[in-house]
Design a binder for these strands. Sequence first.
DNA 1: CAAATCCAATTGGTATATTAGATATTTACA
DNA 2: TGTAAATATCTAATATACCAATTGGATTTG
Lengths: 222, 222
Amino acid sequence: MPRTGRAPIRRRLLRDEIYDTILNAILDGTLEAGEQLHDEELLTWLGTSRTPIREALNRLAENGIVELVPHKYTRVVPLDFRNINEAIFTTGVLHEHAARKTVGNLSADQLAELQGFAEDARACLKSDDLAGLGPAIRDFFLVFEQATGNRIMVETVEGLSLQLLRFLTPREGLTGAPEIVEQLEAINAAAHTGDAAATGDLIYAMYEPTRRNFIETFRGQD
Amino acid sequence: MPRTGRAPIRRRLLRDEIYDTILNAILDGTLEAGEQLHDEELLTWLGTSRTPIREALNRLAENGIVELVPHKYTRVVPLDFRNINEAIFTTGVLHEHAARKTVGNLSADQLAELQGFAEDARACLKSDDLAGLGPAIRDFFLVFEQATGNRIMVETVEGLSLQLLRFLTPREGLTGAPEIVEQLEAINAAAHTGDAAATGDLIYAMYEPTRRNFIETFRGQD
DNA sequence: CAAATCCAATTGGTATATTAGATATTTACA
DNA sequence: TGTAAATATCTAATATACCAATTGGATTTG
């Protein structure tokens, strides 16, 4: 029972559909890292005109998923652990802050959400579903940001999380995954006790070593 | 001698020029808050075709400056102190973290930059140049983020700072401005002593009350 | 062999027509 | 007369075809 849903109110614009389609194709490996995207091919693939395709590509470029080099090429941004480093670190700072501000005042529903996403992560690990692990981790921490009531912080984290999803999704044998799930469960437990300082410390302790883990895991792959 | 320059390598794409043009028009009040933007009017005003205009508008919408309501209207996002609240708070968290991580290891050049932007801010205050104050404050804190070497954090803060610019630019008699400049100078002094903890505390002490100040300043204006 | 030139590939931009969603207005009907 | 369905009228979204600008490499030329 995945709880990943964050219902989009309106998602019937062609450019948004295309954005999702291309993004998902990148996340599930249909479009490979570094692969070149040609206008004409996208046109026949998606069966629309260039207008919404280019708008979707621009948005993907804004989010660092696609690279647009004028008059040369459009391509999927190659996997670069420097990017994931930086994005994880940035979101980590925000997660830590949000947790320190909200833990102790979380509602029963919010605590249940944390619990649920932690369980989702564990289930994904057990069934080797790395594609589901990324969203579970993202949504787990988003509970803290949403609890602050700061919509801009939520949107910022959502955007940055795309880098995390790109890295977690297509890979097999990510060595750090079990530890990450354990840490998630520890953070969940701390949040349930209402100890904000302990929760914050756990998050800090998580994103610092996570960064190093990513570096080691993917060193020399590019 | 403004030091606001952050030289763009290539900025010769029409959509980028248009983005800057519209953004500046919004920041300097040429386009008012809440004002509706009609495709046809922009077309004749900017003298280009629809394509680059819509691409610029999409990017502005992504940054929360413009609101695109499908099939209804496009408008400048009305001034909303909830947005500035949230953006200031989010950047504040990142500023504080970046400062705590870098102060003590800043180069002479970086310290000189801090000093320069603080002086810029003071000069803007003295000459009632509120339009210059926003960029000075933004660039002052960006020194910390740039010192971390985290490009994604830099880009994130740059994007969020647009909300700050919108609020600081067009207003007269912003009551909190002198205090802000004083705090900037205090932070600059602390950074020069190399005391990261003190610098972080000062930044935290700055963005918390700043948020309240904004609320009081603009209460009931919408 | 080096420099200039040409040519193909690709995206950026132009121009205009068509589609479709949202709103207000009118009309038809109870 | 009141209300709901049909319609007119905005607006932005998308479609289509074409041209321009830039790049990189192949080709020519001195």
